[in-house]
């Protein structure tokens, strides 16, 4: 596909922004830890989308490389986050994040 495709970068970035806000809202509202982690994934994906779209606008590989690094981060973070989730479930018997509030005061 060697045709020039005109997809405005701003639209792509706008999409990324909207997805990011939705993810942010999810983090703030949801009480279940799994749902919070999923919302974090949404936010990371939105950032990755922004990188790729911006890189494609300049026809450089840098955007995709940054996307790969974001992917790496997301993977590591999910691994550790789910481990923590298992510990919380073991200790409190529930997945309610409001139960883990001993750092109060």
């Amino acid at each position: 596909m060697t045709e020039a495709v005109v997809i405005p970068m701003e639209h792509g970035l706008l999409l990324a922004a909207i997805l990011f806000s939705i993810g942010l809202g999810g983090v703030m509202v949801r009480r279940n830890i799994i749902l919070i982690l999923m919302s974090l994934e949404i936010m990371l994906n939105a950032c990755a989308l922004a990188f790729v779209v911006a890189g494609a606008r300049w026809a450089e590989a840098d955007g995709q490389i940054m996307f790969m690094l974001v992917l790496t981060i997301a993977a590591a973070e999910v691994a550790v986050g789910l481990g923590l989730l298992l510990q919380v479930h073991r200790r409190f018997g529930t997945l309610d994040i409001d139960r883990a509030n001993r750092m109060r005061g």
Binding site: M1, T2, A4, V5, V6, I7, P8, M9, E10, L13, L14, A17, I18, S21, L24, G55, A56, R57, W58, A59, E60, A61, Q64
Partner: peptide
């Protein structure tokens, strides 16, 4: 929504994308 509005505003003052090749 406020955050979104800000980002939209910022983006609207940028320039249009040009043709992009496949990488």
């Amino acid at each position: 929504l406020v955050l979104l509005g800000e980002i939209t505003y910022i983006l609207s003052t940028g320039n249009h994308a040009l043709a992009g090749n496949v990488v």
